[in-house]
């Protein structure tokens, strides 16, 4: 609870100081290039990887990517690039 409060204080401070949130806090950042390429920054590991489904854990919850011929173009500590024909991106139980 205390952690949750401190985080919201950090966000409020960033908003007050007019600092862009993406640089101030480590929220997951999702970039979708058409339906062919997805870049997810600040992730917390892969839960499941299949050619038609990829589940990735983030700070806020689980991100479900559904499509065909899905492949991980690159996997780094804080960035994942998914390639393939993406048909659905679902945020499961995000708080």
């Amino acid at each position: 609870m205390a952690k949750h409060r401190s985080q919201s204080v950090g966000v409020k401070l960033a908003q007050f100081l007019d600092i862009p949130l993406d640089t101030a806090v480590d929220w997951p950042r999702l970039t979708l290039n058409a339906n062919r390429n997805l870049v997810l920054q600040n992730h917390r590991g892969i839960i499941e990887y299949d050619q038609s489904l990829i589940r990735i854990n983030t700070k806020f919850g689980e991100l479900k990517i559904i499509g065909t011929n899905l492949a991980l173009l690159s996997a780094l500590k804080d960035e994942i690039v998914v390639e393939g024909k993406i048909s659905k991106v679902e945020m499961v139980d995000w708080r």
């Binding site: 492949a71 991980l72 173009l73 996997a75």
Partner: peptide, 20 residues
């Protein structure tokens, strides 16, 4: 396999062209 990818990336290894 997912656990392997997670451990590898968190230990600083760079994996690319991952295909099932």
């Amino acid at each position: 396999i997912e656990k392997f990818i997670n451990l590898a990336t968190s230990s600083g290894l760079y994996l690319w062209d991952i295909k099932r």
